[in-house]
Design a protein around this nucleic acid. Structure first.
Lengths: 150, 150
DNA sequence: CCGACTGAGTTCCCTTTTAGAACTTATTCA
DNA sequence: TGAATAAGTTCTAAAAGGGAACTCAGTCGG
């Protein structure tokens, strides 16, 4: 199968990855969450080719994950900002960062930590059940296909 | 920058993506979480080239995300199973699936739902603060660099 | 007013990666 | 004996990516 057809598969993971599953895209989004907004800043920070960056930003704009808006009319200059749909990718970014912190960090520990303003603590967000509040354990989750018997 | 050097960047997201950020790898892991264990089954389900599949499985084994073990001595046959390190990627997979369910699902809704055995409900796991239990809102999270003032 | 500079891309050429099919190896089954 | 199976490996053409140079519109310093 060609990668370009992967978004047609009836699977939310495949469909999501068809948009953000490319090598650089999640790093572009990481930068966006850290406040990077401009083409030059993404390029300098990530060091990917300008060609690819333009392409990836275009895809994210097309899928309404980023919004391209002018911040100067003359000369014409644009910046990229996360939309609501883009902000909703936060759990993906955080989960990836969390795993990296637990399994790939060096001696010095995680390069970046997060403070939760609501409670003031430095935390590592975790998946929980919105119903019973319990921490999610993969072995406690059963997948059900659409239309499967209850 | 070359992609192969991305793992050297001092960032947990970059380091994680250097291992699992490739296009097919997360789909291989999705299958692993759904119980797929054998080369042929991965290949038939995903439809990627056998060449790439062998390569990606090799990388996952090398990083101890999957364990390659014989399930038959004669003829020699192997299966791939998630290790603890691999199982710990569950939040990543689930977050990706959750976003796809919310933003990319068709008319029929999510193709797959999850039942939480502990409470019996069909749920969508969500990120919460392990300290105060509140649901995570990206705007309530402040990133702090290692060594930054408290 | 002229030349250098800036931000946001494009274009070009060459290298690396990927897709798809065919081939290999070891062993069992009919 | 011949076909089938699982798990790869090898081959070639096509697609994607890397890096540097180029464009374009407007601004700034002298």
């Amino acid at each position: 199968m060609r990668w370009k057809d992967i978004g047609d598969v009836d699977c939310s993971i495949a469909r999501t990855l068809s948009v953000i599953g490319d090598r650089w895209t999640l790093l572009v989004l990481r930068d966006a969450f850290l406040g990077v907004r401009r083409f030059e800043d993404f390029q300098n920070d990530l060091g990917l080719s300008r060609h690819l960056l333009a392409d990836r930003l275009g895809i994210l704009v097309e899928h309404e994950i980023l919004d391209r808006r002018p911040y100067s009319e003359r000369p014409p200059r644009y910046e990229y900002r996360l939309t609501a749909k883009g902000l909703d990718l936060y759990p993906v970014i955080i989960s990836i960062a969390g795993w990296g912190d637990r399994w790939m960090a060096g001696e010095d520990g995680p390069p970046l930590t997060l403070r939760h303003q609501s409670c003031g603590e430095i935390i590592a967000p975790a998946l929980t059940c919105p119903c019973c509040g319990e921490r999610i354990d993969p072995r406690q989750m059963t997948p059900l296909s659409r239309g499967a018997s209850p």
